[in-house]
Nucleic acid binder design. Structure first.
Lengths: 165, 165
DNA sequence: ATAAACTTTCAATAATACTTGAAAGTTCAA
DNA sequence: TTGAACTTTCAAGTATTATTGAAAGTTTAT
């Protein structure tokens, strides 16, 4: 397969995957682009490559930096800002896990803590309490796993997987 | 907290969570509703409770069944269909993992297999190959973990977690 | 066969999310 | 200070996705 074709497919696919992961398409595409480029890219270059506007490029590059998935790179003697992505896939995984935990799991845990103290003792309320307590437990376990993953310096996750098989 | 308030918050939150998980809001809300109700619910009851149209209720109930998260229940002597959700949170987790793997991971693995055979040996192409191979490896490992999780009869995931801490 | 009870479909509409591009803001060298 | 080089903002426009509701389809009892 030709490089240009492969690159295009890859960027496109990454965008699609991103959208089913709560990350918007363009942000995922910029990330994909930075992942495979050798040199850091400027906003101009990103705009050009992905055929997007300046505003869009700017917003999504900032979002990537928010997520800890891209960094500014200053080139000596240049005013322009350049951007690069970390290419270590495990680090990316950790970053994404961290962000999603913060944005999604944490609020859910907070909510569950609030609502499991619902008053009453009708069958309905008992059932509600049972279900939400189960969810709370599950959320707690998930949190523990994610915390371990996030804090892991090396790759315990897959080391364990190796032992299991 | 009053039951009605707690229930409302819970359904609302579940809907929000759902949307950042690739499941649409209404589908997640119907699921939340079925999770806490003691009896199976009819389309009418779902419409009433969530203030949604018949078409919407019907479509999303079907989607839930597609995902394996809800089942039809036939009540003797009734024409109407009723629906219930499995309340075992681990089973739900497994179902969701299964569906998402099929819809998201599988296509990515397929794509990576295609594009890692890109031809050329410029620095650019070499980098591309390196990055996509890493992704391929990561995707493969993720697949293995998911498969283990999906096939697990009991809860190995958290048993191991227990041993780790 | 008919009709009542119920479910499904789908074109139109509404809601949401994304993108643009030009104007405003910032920084810095001279 | 000025103005050129660059970045950020945001209102308006576009695209995408979800929802409605009425009509068409299906099933079952009689």
């Amino acid at each position: 397969m030709k490089y240009s074709e492969a690159k295009e497919k890859y960027i496109h696919a990454w965008g699609t995957l991103g959208s089913s992961w709560g990350v918007n398409r363009t942000m995922a595409q910029i990330h994909a682009l930075l992942m495979v480029s050798i040199e850091p890219l400027s906003t101009e270059e990103i705009m050009e490559e992905l055929k997007i506007s300046r505003g869009n490029a700017n917003m999504n590059v900032r979002a990537l930096m928010d997520w800890g998935l891209a960094d500014k790179v200053l080139v000596a003697g240049e005013r322009k800002e350049y951007f690069k992505a970390d290419k270590d896939i495990m680090k990316i995984g950790v970053q994404v896990a961290k962000e999603r935990k913060r944005r999604e799991l944490d609020p859910i845990i907070k909510l569950l803590n609030e609502i499991t103290v619902v008053d009453g003792d009708t069958a309905e309320v008992k059932e509600f309490r049972k279900v939400t307590k189960d969810l709370q437990k599950f959320a707690g376990q998930t949190e523990s796993v994610l915390d371990l993953f996030i804090k892991s310096k090396d790759n315990w996750f897959f080391k364990i997987l190796g032992k299991l098989r």
